[in-house]
Amino acid sequence: MTYKESHTLILNNIARFIDLTEVEKQKYISLLTEIKVKKKTFLIQAGEIARYEYFITKGCLKVYTLDEEGVPHISMFAVEDYWTGDMASFMTKEPTRYFIRATEHSELLGISRANYDLLFREIPKLERFYRILYQRSLISYIRRSNHGISLTAEERYLAFKKKYPKIVNRITQKDLAGYIGITPEFMSKIITKVNRT
């Protein structure tokens, strides 16, 4: 069977960890919702309940919280072939603390909570895929937390640039500063210094 490009992308993502039969692939695709988000539009905002887990097929989104002064603290950027959402809100049906906003016109595939539960009943091996996905996400979160404690701002920037070369040129310097945890002015100084060396 021939699949749409977006469906091929998500099926290839899953195929890194588990094998699905053709029937299982078609069932999985049938449970997904196609979502388009214009640049600067919110996919979800703090206080809402996360009703989907998302897979990005095109574009770029940022996930962040706001502190008491309204300063954004970016926890991740999600581009093509990435998953995003707020798993805690999705699973507990409690309001999220996060904002997810498109920094580019974006296209996503979403799975609702009802279809997520149905998926595990109908294709149990997908539980393994999602377990691996969440384990990798947790490991990434722990490493990022450790970097925040043990690395300088310049080292955090260099680590980000090395790990995410496809993202670094797609985001603003201000957003990058929000991810690194510094002011945009200090971010500018670091970039200038790094580019000189």
Rank of each mutant, 00 (worst) to 15 (best):
M1Q: 08
M1K: 12
T2H: 11
Y3E: 00
Y3N: 05
K4N: 02
K4L: 13
K4P: 05
S6P: 02
H7V: 06
T8G: 14
T8P: 07
R16C: 01
F17H: 04
F17K: 00
E24A: 06
Q26F: 08
K27M: 15
Y28A: 10
L31V: 01
L32E: 10
L32Y: 10
T33V: 10
E34V: 04
I35H: 08
K36N: 13
K38M: 06
I44M: 00
I44Y: 01
Q45N: 11
Q45G: 11
Q45I: 04
I49A: 13
E53V: 09
T57L: 14
K58I: 00
G59V: 08
C60W: 05
L61A: 07
V63T: 12
V63S: 13
T65Y: 14
L66K: 14
D67Y: 07
D67C: 00
E68I: 13
G70D: 06
V71D: 09
F77H: 02
F77Q: 03
V79Y: 03
D81H: 07
Y82H: 13
W83G: 04
D86T: 03
A88P: 05
M91F: 13
P95V: 04
T96G: 01
I100D: 15
T103E: 12
T103S: 07
E104C: 06
E107Y: 10
E107T: 08
E107C: 05
L108M: 07
G110I: 13
R113G: 12
R113T: 07
L119C: 02
F120E: 09
I123H: 11
K125G: 05
F129L: 03
F129R: 02
Y130D: 04
I132K: 10
Q135L: 02
R143G: 00
R143Q: 08
R143K: 07
R144E: 00
G148W: 10
I149M: 02
E155R: 02
Y157D: 08
K161H: 15
K163M: 07
K163E: 06
Y164R: 10
K166A: 15
N169T: 12
Q173A: 12
D175N: 02
D175C: 00
L176K: 13
Y179S: 00
I180G: 12
G181E: 12
T183H: 01
E185A: 09
M187T: 09
S188K: 04
I191D: 11
V194R: 03
V194L: 14
V194N: 11
N195P: 06
R196M: 05
